[in-house]
Design a protein around this nucleic acid. Structure first.
Lengths: 201, 201
DNA sequence: CCAAAAATAGACCGACCGGTCTATATAGAC
DNA sequence: GTCTATATAGACCGGTCGGTCTATTTTTGG
């Protein structure tokens, strides 16, 4: 997969941020803001300050392969953010509250350009390339798993934990849609509060 | 806006379905499935069985104007579906249960191609043309209003009713994202069940 | 230091994009 | 029937799309 493409410099673990990394984060940002189809290669290349040759060197599969890498990276950001909140807060309810605040903050700090880094592509490419869909599914799955694991640790039965975790992610994702169209963080913060009530009960 | 474009035949209220109507519903379907940017005019024209000249006759503003009309139409479908469920069920909780089943049914019946008719465009065009965003915001607002009104009628304080209605829509929208990527109606049905619990409490 | 590999650089390509324009057909008013 | 909207029809346009290809520069292992 994409990991087999990683160049020697990255494997060695030092040197400055490679053009490969810049491409992934530029693509991830643009896909998050406006989706996969609406983002042209030239736009990605401009933002990453990279010529076309480098893109096709690192990603022979072109835009499709870059899309997969971007969704994997976005999923890891999401999962890492939630995991660190779980650790710092110690409870699922607390982590959800903090996570919702994180999301609302990202949104407001980007002038409502950046909601979920995965959701836009998830919807428009739901019938698209299977490996892209798989990367997106994996991103969501990682978040659900992390949250469900904490719930189980708090004594919730496994099946109920998965249901609750899925519900939490659903609610936050949907709130992010409304928040972007309303240009207000309120739906996300409110969703966080209601989920805390639910998890505390 | 778009209503000023309506041709004489439609105003008179008879004759068969006009090409204008076919264009709107073809566009709405395609935008729902794959988004605005990913859908070419040629695709819309093919599905509507209409030549390009007709499109630019009915929608001088081109794809952008058609997009607004499609989102308005999609919003009305959504609002009408919920309203009729509110009437038939008599309670907000019952209507949400039925509405969630409707959404899950649409999804499964279309091989997971059709989730929310508005959400895909909402995300990818959140920073796009203001009138398109306004149409989308109006669509969501109509759903929230209808649900909140019922909650108020059941005795919920107005402010709390809006919060709950927004939460319901958020949860269902998010569940539709997960459902499409997982190719399963389960997240939507589960979200409906949990929302019923919440509203009944 | 040098050969080989990796990465950068961008000109170039055919396909398709949304949009314009002119010509023709169809319908309603009188 | 004729005149005039209205609507249909599609050839055509410049621009941009994703992708390929060759040449050059940079890095690296010996």
């Amino acid at each position: 997969m994409s990991s087999s493409q990683r160049p020697a410099a990255a494997r060695a673990g030092r040197k400055r941020e490679s053009s490969r990394t810049r491409l992934i984060s530029a693509a991830a940002q643009l896909f998050q803001e406006q989706g996969f189809a609406a983002t042209g290669l030239s736009e990605i290349l401009d933002r990453a300050q990279t010529p076309k040759g480098s893109l096709y060197h690192h990603f022979p599969g072109g835009k499709a392969e870059l899309g997969v890498a971007a969704m994997e990276a976005a999923g890891q950001v999401l999962q890492h953010t939630l995991t660190s909140r779980l650790e710092s807060q110690g409870s699922a309810a607390g982590a959800i509250a903090a996570f919702a605040d994180d999301l609302a903050g990202w949104l407001e700090g980007s002038d409502f350009s950046r909601g979920c880094p995965v959701a836009t592509v998830a919807l428009e490419q739901a019938n698209g390339a299977p490996d892209l869909v798989a990367a997106i599914r994996g991103a969501f799955e990682g978040v659900i798993d992390a949250l469900a694991r904490q719930l189980v640790a708090e004594g919730t039965p496994a099946e109920r934990a998965r249901r609750l975790a899925t519900l939490c992610l659903s609610t936050l994702e949907g709130a992010l849609i409304l928040a972007r169209t309303q240009r207000s963080g309120a739906p996300v913060r409110m969703a966080g509060e209601e989920l805390v009530n639910l998890l505390s009960a």
